Each structure stands twice: as C-alpha cells, then as structure tokens.
Computed example of a mutant assay.
Amino acid sequence: MSWDDILDAMVGGLADYGAILALVQNSVWAGAVLGLVGGLIGVFVMQRDMAFAVHGISELSFAGAALALLVGFDVVTGSIIGSLIAAAVIGVLGARARDRNSVIGVLMPFGLGLGILFLSLYSGRSANRFSLLTGQIVSVQSGDLGWLIGIGAVVLVALLLVWRPLRFDSLDPQSAAARGVPTRWISLGFMLLLGLIVAVAVHIIGALLVMALLVTPAAAAMRVSSGPVAVPVLAAVFGVVSAVGGILLAVAGTLPVSPYITTISFLIYLVCRIAGGRRDRVTRAG
C-alpha cells in the first residue's frame, strides 16, 4: 500500500468520525455539563460521606425512567421524579449517618427491583432498556438536551448560591448548627440538587455507573489537593475530561459509552492517588 492510499484511508476515517460525531453532539454537550456540575457537587458528596447515597438515588431514578418508558411518558421527567423522591426520602429520614445508610440500603434493592420489573414488561427496543442501565451514546435526543442542560445550570447556580453554608455544614455540622446555619434545610436542599444531577447522569452513563462522574473526580482531586478552590476546580476538570473524553472515544468504538467514561475516570483517580502518595512521603521525609 502506497503512502497516498494510507493518507486517503486516514482522511476517509476522519471524515467518518466527524460525521458520527455530528450525530452525537447532544451527548457531548450534555456530558460536558454533567462532568462540570457532577465534579463540583461530588466534592460535597465526599465531604459529607454520601457516596452510597448517589447509588441509592440512581436506583430510584432508574425505576422512574423505566416506568416512564413502559407507559410512553417522557423518560427524562420520569427519571427526575424518581431521583427527587429518593433524595427527599433520604434527606428527611436519613439525617444521621447511621439512619441514612439504613434508608439507602432499603431503597436501593426496592428501586432496582421496580426498574427491572418495568423493563421486563416493556416490549419496545432493547437498546432503550440497556441504555438506562449502562448509558448509550445516542440516548440524548434534541428534545432532551435543553432539559438536561437546564437542569445542570439550575443545580450549578443553586450550588454556588449555597456554597459557603453548605461547605461549613459539610466540614463541621455541629459548629454550623451552633452558628445558626439551617443545617436541616441545607442538607435537604443539597439532597434535592444531588437528585437532579443524578437524573442527568442516568441518561449519559447509566444508572449503574453514576458514581464514576459524581464521586470519582472529586475523590481524585482530594488526593492531590486540599485547597478550598483547587479541589472543586480539579474535580470539575476531571469530570469534564472523563465525560467528554469517554464520549469522543466511544464515537470511534463499538462499546457503550460507559466503559470509556469509567476507565478514564478511574485512570485519573489512579494517577492522582500515586501522585498524592508520593507527595505525602516527601512531606513526611522532609
């Protein structure tokens, strides 16, 4: 094969990639928003030790989306309703960590069981069922994009408005309560914001793997920094790189988008963990 043939093949491959990428640009935009907001809210998820809650909310979000799919209702709306119900239940009944874990442990199998039931009754395309669990690169339609970006923007603005009291409550809830911070309402509000962004995540990466974008980027950022500004900035960057990078790789492959996103997210965490460990050893040695 001559160099001209190789060059023609490369140009043709790039043209095909560009054509496919144009078809999934909705997912790219939604993924970027999810990575940004998911990274930021993930910082508080880690500080409040609520990684388990993310998975619990995602199961009810999955059940809501599956029910909507079964009855022919809007899937995004069904997912949002399921997420908000789960977030409200956890926020109200799980004020203490021990109670919260018990509530989540009850909700998770219940939500997953309902979701599986609804999907088993659904007689439509199998790809629609599969995408709710593990994500699908073309799952974000034009009609859904505005919803997903709008939800992400609402969560981002609300998060910025309550950033300081939420951070105070996350790091030292006893002192925050003593200083007059409405910790119960702050906690409930945070849970509802978390529920909204989980609903977005279900449509990008699937219900089973949402922690890859709502927990892992923040966990990675905390391994290499402890600054109040550096951690959320790094978490947001890691989230966007994981989401958008995974979608761009999935365009060229045949696998669902979720393995790419989870792999990138895990590799970022692994690198940060190694770098953080070396930094700690150098600090102790000094």
Score class of each variant (00 low, 15 high):
Gly253Tyr: 11
Ser2Met: 13
Ala199Asp: 02
Arg279His: 15
Ser61Asn: 04
Arg167Asp: 14
Val71Phe: 10
Leu133Asn: 09
Asp74Val: 02
Tyr17Pro: 08
Gly72Ala: 06
Asp74Gly: 00
Arg284Tyr: 13
Thr183Gln: 03
Gly78Ala: 02
Ile149Gly: 07
Ile81Met: 08
Thr183Phe: 08
Val229Met: 07
Ala243Lys: 04
Ser61Thr: 08
Gln25Phe: 12
Ala32Pro: 00
Gly277Ala: 07
Arg279Leu: 09
Ser226Trp: 13
Asp144Tyr: 13
Ser2Asn: 15
Pro228Phe: 10
Ile186Asp: 12
Phe190His: 04
Trp3His: 10
Gln136Gly: 10
Ser123Val: 08
Phe266Trp: 07
Ser27Asn: 13
Arg167Met: 02
Trp29Arg: 01
Pro259Ala: 03
Met50Pro: 05
Leu70Thr: 15
Gly113Tyr: 01
Phe130Arg: 02
Gly35Ser: 05
Val271Ile: 15
Leu255Cys: 14
Ile81Phe: 13
Ala15Gly: 07
Ser131Met: 09
Ile268Leu: 15
Ala95Phe: 05
Ala177Trp: 12
Gly150Asn: 14
Gly13Pro: 00
Leu208Val: 06
Val200Ile: 00
Val24Asn: 00
Ile274Met: 13
Ser61Tyr: 02
Leu196Gln: 01
Leu133Ala: 14
Ala88Trp: 05
Ile41Lys: 04
Ala19Ser: 06
Leu166Gln: 09
Ser258Asn: 01
Gly150Gln: 05
Pro259Arg: 06
Ser61Lys: 01
Ala275Tyr: 14
Leu196Val: 11
Ile20Phe: 11
Ala51Asn: 11
His55Glu: 07
Gly113Asp: 04
Ala212Gly: 05
Ser123Lys: 14
Val28Ile: 05
Gly135Trp: 04
Phe110Glu: 02
Leu188Val: 12
Leu161Asp: 04
Ser102Tyr: 10
Gly38Asn: 11
